[in-house]
Amino acid sequence: MTDSRPESPPMSESKPLSAELETANDQGSKEGSKARQLLGMKGAATGDRSIWQLRLQLMKPITWIPLIWGVVCGAAASGNYTWTIEHVLIAAACMLLSGPLMTGYTQTLNDFYDREIDAINEPYRPIPSGAISVPQVIAQVLVLLGVSMVLAFGLDLWAGHAFPSVAAIAILGGFLAFIYSAPPLKLKQNGWLGNYALGASYIALPWWAGQALFGELDWQTMVLTLFYSLAGLGIAVVNDFKSVEGDRQLGLKSIPVMFGITTAAWVCVLMIDVFQLGIALYLFSIQQKIYAVILILLVIPQITFQDMYFLRNPLENDVKYQASAQPFLVLGMLVTALAIGHAA
């Protein structure tokens, strides 16, 4: 009798499952690296990039999110935002101002002045890798700043402001970005001043813009958000851990360089938690007790992720920690904004 079973292919012709898995993993790693590259995250790819990909990478889209959220919080705190098409479009324009334009300007400017540090810490960045020229970077900085100012004045015209408050906030943000990155002040050389300027730019300024656009920006809210920005200082410190080696070589006094990795990690998490709890106490004092309790409940998972990831290995787990814990911080900002809007 003849065997009717199909012949098995020779071993040399079949692809081992382990090889297929390895190929798939490599492909997934490359795709993930490309995504990180476009978002401006650590661990980017170094392959061919178009000029527009390079410009987007300089603007670090991953950093736009807190600024966009800050506008949402300001609008909520105004107590006057309504879900009409007009308000939605105006809010979107303010988000464009705070996120892609002003933050894109800030990040591009920072990369320009940090090109020597990035050559050590992140040599794949567009400028140190030589993928984009310095004149092209300068042009990008000027265009982003110019469009930002035009849009800010346009928003003031829509709101009917006698004093151009949104434009003034944008000018302040542009000035802070410059002295943060550029000599002779270069605030980022000082871990405390630089990170607080960053925290205020991420929390207070977009909040002020959103609230001024839809309502009245009072001094109490300005003081409260500047206090809240001390929690933002802690978030800013998280970003310093990826640059420890370059900062140390170039004499920048970041928190991790000054205090060491372990102590800096504790400084970071305590700043984040303590000042949020301080905001909760303020909400209790203005009789917004439900919002205060919600804010406290949002701090609890942050503490959990701090223990799980950040305090154990801040150098390796900084991105993982931010992805897991930062959503609770931004939700807490919105809870605070809603409380202020409700109390108004």
Rank of each mutant, 00 (worst) to 15 (best):
E20K: 10
G260K: 05
D118Y: 11
W219F: 13
L96T: 11
G40T: 09
M1N: 03
V72M: 10
A264M: 07
K186T: 04
Q322T: 12
W207L: 12
Y291I: 01
V134A: 08
A200V: 12
L96K: 02
M95F: 12
P16I: 06
S165T: 15
V244H: 10
V330D: 12
L217C: 06
D3Y: 10
G278F: 13
S129G: 02
W69H: 12
K42S: 13
P16S: 13
S14C: 07
I85P: 00
A344I: 13
A24Q: 06
V330F: 15
A200R: 02
D218A: 08
L334S: 05
L198W: 01
P183F: 01
G251K: 04
L205I: 14
L329G: 09
A76R: 03
S201Q: 06
W64N: 12
L155A: 05
E13Y: 00
I51T: 11
V299Q: 05
Q322K: 11
W207D: 01
A264F: 04
L331N: 04
Q27S: 03
I340D: 10
A212R: 03
L311S: 01
L54D: 11
A45Q: 05
I169A: 12
G341W: 09
C268E: 14
Q306L: 00
P9W: 02
I279C: 11
A323W: 09
L39E: 04
A159C: 10
Q288S: 12
M222G: 04
S165E: 15
A204G: 06
L329D: 02
K15Y: 07
K188S: 08
A182S: 15
N195D: 11
R115T: 13
M258E: 10
Q211C: 12
